[in-house]
Each structure stands twice: as structure tokens, then as C-alpha cells.
Design a protein around this nucleic acid. Structure first.
Lengths: 399, 399
DNA sequence: CTAACTTAGTTCGGAATCGAAGTTAGTTGC
DNA sequence: GCAACTAACTTCGATTCCGAACTAAGTTAG
């Protein structure tokens, strides 16, 4: 056979009608799905293609039943654009957000909208042999083979360091039995479809970023987002140029296990001592509250107590925010993002967000905070599920 | 009028022969100049174009006198590639590396090779009105209008935070008179050509990265480089995907003014207290040595003393390296680069490099140091000049 | 040393993309 | 409420770029 061009540009695609689509067709689908472009003119700008080319491609995709027009947008001094969307029932995506103690699954249409979801308490330490079949069953419960459009892919968010290329966790702490278990392959075989897995912070970052892009498609310049997940644990996801940045070995975004002076030599789940996570995370707060006789089972309890005005808890949360802000400022200085988003359970607390924000403004170089936006997550607890769906969607549409 | 396509693909280019070159022609020139591709087959892979297209483009460029074949490379199991290079005298580039106390200028051919250079002591605090004309005169001294090929561009490395879009410094400490002075515009007007300026750490990072790419064109995967410049001051440049990463406001890479415990509340030139730079920089070492009666005028003196085996200085240098390594580990964990390069005067000292390296291995997450390379700069003191030339070259060839 | 394989580069017809000019449909300012 | 402007989208001929098949020139294994 010999000649296998890596620059191949023509791909076959199965869909409502089998039709040959060119390279750019999948980019177009990706752009529409992720909200990076909403009209033909948008597409021409974003993909750097001639408007005439876009017309042809869009017509092909519409004839193939993959996209459709969905009314017109608002004018900006000229003719108003025709908005485009993926035909919602040309297929669907299943997504799962796996935490230490919860399993949240959802179903999304090809526009990346969450249509249904289900949550259940689990113990991650039961290992993949128990947890993954549970997840699969819950996801299947959201489908009905008799009437469903085709399943296009499955995405899963995992609460530990993920080797993205392998589709597996790499030495996660507090996740017995998961080390190097090929989660992605398992999902792909189980559902007989494309699957993607990534670290929860990355997924949440992507989910949040996509949501923000859709909310304000005008401000297309804000493409560098730093997402900090502060729940029971601390994690960080980075979006550079609209895409998840994973670094050389997929470890990028680690910030929880930085040694900080305020932590003294408190032992950390990672095996080291004095990590940020032993002071600024939800677990650390809960531990410290227990020491003074205040009972909180999980981060939600902490949130409740602060909302009820408990002064001790509020002070502790504020301290955690300030310390996190100090460490985060190093990273913000270095990465110089457009947006810093605070997610995870603690981000629901205004005192926490305020503490992080003010500490960032104090500790960062003025140039780094010049036009920065520091806000709590818009996606909230859905961020992980949305991100897992979004990453899956992008992968599906790009393949 | 009216229709100004931003996706325009056909550009005119002045050269030995005026000829219309397509979009890809400039990419080809860039790739060859930066060493990212050395043969037609390389170009096809790197640019994701069909080999046939490359043939056509390369022939055009050769007819236009911009590139030429330069012998054949070594075979890897098949026919050996014909190496391509920019015709050295189709033009040249001037570069300048400006420091607090030195001004180093150089002349490069279109292959990015340094052909001649000149260094002089200056005082940056004389301001742009004095220093820039000096620089221009020194650069002119490297040219001979009678016999030279055309000057294609000028690049300058600046020792402070640069707003890249503006081409000016933004609130540099210890650089009286430079704030918001439009250095790039000044150079462009002075030489009547394209000009680029950037922060010294970014320039050095690019110079080093380019050099490494040429040394081992086989390992094309190492595209994420973190370059740490440790001289009198500390700076950091980041190469992501082969290109300088500057962040939202051009402030990316700042690491010198992180507050660290070891610094206590030592005052820093930035106005804050307790910055990394007050402990781990060359200036800090010189200051501390003076306090115990050891005289060192600049970083070179420190280097000499360590090489002469002065135990006190060596210990101090090792301490600086360890402290730097601690802070750097936060960034290395977060960015997860393929390569960490140590540059600047202190990087000539094996004890310094060893201290940083061992501290990084100790403090970083194992996943982040899995395949990492931590080395002293190959470009050495030329890094800044090479980088300034390289960035200029890339800009020229891409325009 | 030959056969099988691998990699580099070329040729040429056909398909994909472009660019200019035009149409449609708004906004803005007087 | 009209003229001038701006933006979105389409049409169609001209051009570019691709892909398959080919030549060229090496390596490897028996």
C-alpha cells in the first residue's frame, strides 16, 4: 500500500447521510459545537477561510443534516448573521464526573447542552472494577436504544493526575486500584465508541471556558483561562488559546502540592509534608474545624455553616482563601491569564472568593492584574460534566 | 477598496526578483530559518502539506533566490534528503542585547547565524535618548551600505517587562526614563525597516530553543522549554509549541518577585519586600559577600571566585541555587515543560546548576520530572543576541 | 549482491479553495 | 427618511493544492 499521507484532508463520516466531508468540515463542526463561532462570517474569521468556502461547506453540512440555521443574531452595523447550530439529535454524548465520593453522569446533545443527569454516592476506593460498571450502568439508564439517535462518544472526568495519552491515571493518591488502569480504553470498549478521559480540573476548566465563550461570544480575545478547583482537594486547569494545556507529561496545572510555610510540616495525602492542600483545601478546613469541636462532614457542610453566619468557620475559610491566593499569585504572575475562575465547592462562598481575589491583587505584579477578571465559576457544580462532554464533543467532531 | 480579506493568502514580496509568493512560502522560510525543517520532506511533515505542494513552493523560492540547496543530509533508511538553507546574502538582520550595564550588538545572516558582534559598557539609566543612538551607531558600524545585501530587520532584547504589542517597556524598575518609551518604533524609524523588541528572558529562551532544535532536529517533540535567566537579576521565558508565550499582557514568565520565606523582608528593587530576587540573584549574592568582606564587582567576579575554589562564595551560590529551585519547582509543576534551561551568568557555575537541578527533582511531582531535561544553556551569553535575531527573522519571514 | 523495504522528491490531472464582484440587509448620521 | 456606510452571505471563474503513481536513492537482511 505504501503511501499513507499524514496530511490527508478528505475523511469519510457516518451520519444521517453518508457523505464525504473535507478537513474543514470537522473544524466547522468543532467551532460551532464549542461556541467559538456562531455564524458563517464567524467561521470565516476563526478558521481563516474565504467566506465563499464557508458557504459551500456549510451547505454541505446542512444537506448532510448535521447543522441547521437557528434564527439570526444581532446586527453590529450591518446585515445580521444567520446563527448556526448542530442538529441536536444527529447524535448524543454521555459524560461522567467522577469524584472521591460521588459519581455524576449526564447526557448531552451535540450542541454540548446537558439534557439529563443523575448523581450517586460512591467510594472511589472500591476501584475501577466496581466503580466503572456502576458508571456505565448509570449512563445507560439515560439512554433508550429504541428511540435514541446514535451515541457519538463518552467523556469522563477523573479526580487525579491523568496521563492523557494513555487515558489512565498516574499514581493518584487516595484512589486505590486506579493506577495505570486504562479508563479510556475500558469506556471505549464498553460503549463501542470513542472515549476521552482527563483530570477533573482540566475538564472543569474547559467546561467553564466554553460556557463563558457562549455567554459573551463578542469578547473572543479572552482565550487564556486559569481555572482553580477548590473543593475537598485543590486542582488547577489551564486553557491556552482556547484549548486545554497539558504540558509534556500531562501533569500541567499541579498546584496543590506546593510546599508553603503556613503549612508547617502537616502530612499530606501525596506523601510529602507542608503542601498547600493541607491548609487551603476543603479537607483541611474540615479537619481544623473538627479540632475545635465544629462538625462538618463535607465541603457542603462548610458552605452551609458559612452561609448561616458561623464566625469561626467563616474566618477559617477566609484564611484558606488568603493562603491560596498567595500561592496562586505565583502562577498568575507566571502564566498571566486573561481570566481566573474559581470553581469547586468553596467557590460558592463569597468570603473565600473575596479573599483569593484581594490576595491576588496584592501579591501579583500590576502588569499581570491589569485587565484580569477574577470570578467564581459560572458553570458551578456542572463544570466537570459540561467539560467532559465538551472535550468528547470536540474530539468526536474533529475525528 | 471595500473588501480587505483578513484571510488573504497571496502576498507580494520584494527580493532579488519580485515574485508573488503564497501564504505557505513565508511559512517555509520561517521553518527553514528557525531550523524547524531542513528538507522538503521535513517541510511537508511540519507544515502538513502535500509533498507535491512543497516541491512547487521550494522551486519558486529557489528561483526567487531566497533559498538554496546545501548538500544532502544523512539517510535514515532511505534516500537522503536534500538540505535547504536560506541564501545567506539575500539580506541580513541586526540584533542588540541591552543589559543594565552592557550593550551587545550583532549581525546575523538570514539563517540566523551570528556573523559579527560588538560589546560595550553602558549605563541603562542614561535613558533611551542616550542609549538607543549608541546602539544604533554600534549596529551601523557592523554594516557597509556599499556592499551589503538589504537589511531586513532589527531585533532588540530589553532587560525589563515589555509590553510586546506596544513595543515598549512597562514600569521597569531600575531603568530611569524607559517607561513606555516606544523602543520598537524608534528602531523601525531609525533603520527604516521592520523592528521587534522583547524582554531579555523571552529572547534568550527563543535563542536557546532555536539552537537546541538545530542541534538535534530529530527530537522535534521537545517544544515546551522553560528558560531561566539567572544573572544579576532573575527572569524567565517560556516557549510553548515552539513559540514565545507572553500571556494576556505580555507579563508572562515573571518569577523574580515571588515572596519567599527565606528572603525575610529584604527590600527589593520592585518596591516590595521578600522577593526571590533579593536572595537568589547575582546581585543578592554580591551584596551578601560584601557584607562578609568578600569583594565582587559583578556576576563575572562571582563566577571567577567559584572557579578559583573560594569556599564561602561557592556555598552562597549553592544556597541561591537551592532557593531558586524551590520556587522554580512550583512553576515546573504547573507548566510541566520538556526542558528547563538555566542561562545567565550564574548558569556557568556547576554548583549552581547542580543545586537547582537536585532541588527540582526533590520538590517537583514525579510526573513533572519524569522525562524532563534540566541543563545549562548551550547558547551561553549569546542567547539573547541569537534570540533577538531569531525573533526578528521569524517576523520578517512571516510578513 | 540481490531482493525487499524505506525514505525523498517529482509529475500531472482533478478537486478544493480562493478572490473579486455582487446581493441582501442591516446601522448611522444628518 | 434618505444617503453613506458596514456587515453577512453568495456566485462563479481562476488558481492552488492535493493525491496517486512514479522515479530516485538510499538501508537492511539473508
Amino acid at each position: 500500500m505504501g503511501y499513507k499521507p499524514s496530511y490527508a484532508k478528505t475523511v469519510k463520516r457516518t451520519g444521517p447521510r453518508d457523505i464525504a466531508l473535507t478537513e474543514y468540515s470537522s473544524s466547522i463542526l468543532s467551532m460551532i459545537a464549542s461556541g467559538r463561532a456562531r455564524s458563517r462570517a464567524d467561521l470565516a474569521r476563526t478558521l481563516n477561510l474565504a467566506p465563499s468556502t464557508i458557504t459551500i461547506k456549510v451547505n454541505e453540512l446542512m444537506e448532510a443534516g448535521l447543522i441547521s440555521e437557528s434564527g439570526s443574531g444581532s446586527a453590529t452595523g450591518g446585515r445580521r448573521p444567520m446563527l448556526l447550530e448542530l442538529v441536536p439529535d444527529a447524535g448524543f454524548i454521555l459524560a461522567a464526573d467522577l469524584g472521591a465520593h460521588h459519581l455524576w453522569v449526564g447526557r448531552l446533545n451535540l450542541s454540548g447542552n446537558l439534557l439529563a443527569s443523575e448523581i450517586r454516592a460512591i467510594d472511589i476506593n472500591d476501584g475501577p472494577g466496581v466503580v466503572l460498571p456502576q458508571a456505565a450502568a448509570m449512563m445507560r439508564a439515560l439512554t433508550d436504544p429504541a428511540v435514541d439517535p446514535p451515541l457519538r462518544g463518552v467523556g469522563m472526568s477523573l479526580p487525579g493526575p491523568v496521563n492523557f495519552a494513555q487515558g489512565a491515571l498516574d499514581s493518584p493518591s487516595r484512589m486505590r486500584g486506579w493506577h495505570e488502569f486504562k479508563v479510556r480504553n475500558w469506556l471505549a470498549e464498553e460503549f463501542g465508541t470513542l472515549a476521552v478521559v482527563d483530570n477533573d480540573a482540566n475538564m472543569m476548566a474547559l467546561g467553564e471556558h466554553t460556557l463563558r465563550q457562549r455567554e459573551s461570544p463578542d469578547s473572543k480575545v479572552r482565550q487564556n483561562t486559569l481555572f482553580l478547583k477548590a473543593g475537598a482537594a485543590i486542582g488547577c486547569g489551564l486553557i491556552i488559546d482556547g484549548q486545554a494545556y497539558r504540558g509534556a507529561t500531562g501533569a500541567a496545572g499541579d498546584i496543590a502540592h506546593v510546599q508553603i510555610p503556613a503549612a508547617g510540616d502537616a502530612p499530606c495525602s501525596c506523601g510529602n509534608r507542608g503542601c498547600l492542600e493541607t491548609v487551603a483545601s476543603g479537607s483541611a478546613i474540615i479537619r481544623d474545624l473538627a479540632a475545635v469541636g465544629i462538625d462538618a462532614a463535607d465541603v457542603n457542610d462548610v458552605v452551609l455553616q458559612v452561609n448561616n453566619g458561623d464566625p469561626h468557620t467563616t474566618t477559617r475559610v477566609r484564611t484558606a482563601g488568603r493562603i491560596l491566593g498567595q500561592t496562586l499569585s505565583i502562577v498568575v504572575n507566571f502564566v498571566n491569564p486573561d481570566v481566573v475562575v474559581l470553581g469547586g465547592g468553596l467557590s460558592q462562598l463569597e468570603p473565600y472568593v473575596a479573599a483569593v481575589r484581594s490576595q491576588l491583587y496584592e501579591s501579583c505584579h500590576p502588569l499581570a492584574t491589569k485587565n484580569i477578571v477574577i470570578e467564581a465559576s459560572l458553570a458551578g457544580s456542572q463544570a466537570g460534566l459540561l467539560g467532559a462532554g465538551q472535550l468528547c464533543l470536540r474530539t468526536v467532531l474533529a475525528s
